[in-house]
Nucleic acid binder design. Structure first.
Length: 271
DNA sequence: GCCCAGGGCTATG
DNA sequence: CATAGCCATGGG
């Protein structure tokens, strides 16, 4: 029933709770996770990850456990700030989400607090009507693109001005098309995503980084913007163009991991 | 009643 | 390009 997996340089807590992923709950040290039509539980003790209701292969893919995180962290460890973040949260990994679920999640994210984003996504899944169970746990599947057809249908989700974004995305996207973006250069893939209503640079970068293996993507939200200005631009107001150029040069091809660590660090040490 | 929340769109310098 | 006002909703 309960299986386990030995892992190094992995923090389940930080990986799930750092804001990159929304469909999880926590009860007494055990996390209940929903992703890619799965509902499973897991918990960590030291360097052992225990899990139920999911295959080992999926976990390795989902948590990127076959990726050498130590060597990546060594590469982005370029200054005191990122060094402190790495020291505090070493083991936090990017999650490889389903692209469709990831895109819709961040379509819901604009000008919303994280708890409310999670709330909206759960309401959205309830719309699908397809239940999923594991032991005594119950949940709803994430709706497929074809199952979201009108704004009226999403009334109970109360997503506000984001509702039309969700419907339009559903009308012209199939999952296959999103996965195919992985074969494009970063800039082109981002531009493709930005052709959808409601997808700007930030949402596009979140989708590319959290679900499509573009580790150079560096989502710039309000927290990251404030942090970058304070730490790397002497507190001066700075345009996004300059910021993009800086993080790309400063952190290199794994800049996305730097973003993950800085975001989590700056949010948990508000100063 | 006010302000803010993992933004984006649109109309303007 | 950079900025301002607006967008719908909930919580502090």
């Amino acid at each position: 029933m309960t299986a386990h997996l030995r892992i190094s340089t992995f923090s389940l807590k930080d990986t799930l709770e750092c804001g990159q992923f929304f469909r999880y709950t926590k009860a007494m040290g055990t996390y209940l996770v929903q992703s890619s039509n799965r509902l499973f539980s897991l918990w960590q003790k030291g360097d052992v990850l225990f899990y139920e209701g999911v295959e080992e292969d999926f976990l390795i893919h989902f948590f990127r456990l076959d990726e050498n995180l130590d060597s990546i962290l060594k590469e982005i460890d370029r200054d005191l700030s990122i060094h402190q973040a790495i020291q505090k949260y070493r083991g936090m990994r990017l999650i490889r989400q389903d692209p469709w679920e990831c895109l819709l999640s961040f379509l819901c994210s604009s000008a919303k607090s994280i708890p409310h984003i999670r709330c909206i996504i759960e309401c959205l899944c309830r719309i699908s009507g397809e239940k999923i169970s594991f032991g005594t746990y119950l949940g709803y599947r994430f709706p497929e693109p074809t199952s979201i057809q009108s704004e009226v249908q999403l009334e109970s989700v109360r997503a506000g001005f984001r509702t039309s974004y969700l419907v339009k995305a559903s009308q012209c996207i199939d999952r296959h098309q999103l996965l195919a973006l992985r074969d494009l250069p970063y800039r082109e893939a981002r531009q493709q995503l930005m052709n959808f209503r409601g997808v700007g640079k930030k949402v596009a970068d979140c989708t590319l980084l959290y679900s499509l293996d573009f580790l150079e993507a560096f989502p710039i939200d309000t927290w990251i913007k404030r942090g970058l200005e304070k730490i790397y631009f002497s507190g001066r107001r700075t345009g996004e163009r300059k910021m993009e150029e800086f993080v790309s040069n400063h952190f290199g091809p794994y800049a996305g991991y730097a973003q993950l660590y800085l975001y989590h660090y700056w949010r948990n040490h508000r100063s």
